[in-house]
Design a protein around this nucleic acid. Sequence first.
DNA 1: AACAATTAGGTTGCACACAACTAATTTGCA
DNA 2: TGCAAATTAGTTGTGTGCAACCTAATTGTT
Lengths: 143, 143
Amino acid sequence: MSDNLQLEKQLCFRLYSLNKLMCRLYAPVLKELALTYPQYLVMMVLWQYKTGISIKDLGIKLDLDSGTLSPLLKRMEKQALLKRNRQKKDERVVVIKLTQKGIELQKNAEHIPAKMFAVTGLTFEKLQSLNQELDQLIENITD
Amino acid sequence: MSDNLQLEKQLCFRLYSLNKLMCRLYAPVLKELALTYPQYLVMMVLWQYKTGISIKDLGIKLDLDSGTLSPLLKRMEKQALLKRNRQKKDERVVVIKLTQKGIELQKNAEHIPAKMFAVTGLTFEKLQSLNQELDQLIENITD
DNA sequence: AACAATTAGGTTGCACACAACTAATTTGCA
DNA sequence: TGCAAATTAGTTGTGTGCAACCTAATTGTT
């Protein structure tokens, strides 16, 4: 009786659990920066695009739609981390740009990747190969 | 300039993205059963515990607390998939038990694991080893 | 130029997750 | 036995995700 409907056999359940565990691991660290986990992901993109990025492109990077990003960015603007401005050339486009406060927050975040890597208990080689396997899986299931 | 604050380098972002992708892959399949993704996970546990399981134990299996499970189970009860009953011996405990409708839904779900496995594009061996690696990671970061 | 189709972003409604708290019940220990 | 501590669910409030829909601006075609 090969019952395949078992939680323990599901790859999807492992990904679901691991994502939640990761969020919980990051939560206390990010609390010091007054960021939620998705907000931290947004900040990582913005730290790489200090000249600004459109909400559309931000959505492509993070794989999130406007229904999620619009209110999220509004909350971050309220925290004075970023500004939103309509693009002159195309009034449909809203460009997101970090404020000075948002830029300076990067200094306080720089220790996080190493800290979290340590928590995973993986060797650097293991991490690299796991990342590769997950990238392959992402590619496979992305149409 | 080894900028470690890059989205592309983060294991956590891959897990975050993969979890979302998985949910989206399951959504249309689960829609036929009128289930959401977390509800499907609950059903998988209940199909294994047809004699009933307490909300606490369900929470341990799924790694979810009462703040999530209480309203979720209430919605599922409204759909007549399950019943909640206080335990006689210990009135604090609520036991969740499938209704006939809930039990019969299993037949309609039995094709899902094979279907989703196919979508991953992984060989069975690859799936097994990935599952093992993720289990290892879960163990490492679970205190 | 005129107008349909496309594009970018926003809004609404619903379903999670989870922190923080409350209420009811049971347990354990002085 | 009496009562503080622990246990189990439930509630409230906030922040995502996402489907479905809307508005405004731009583009493409005739």
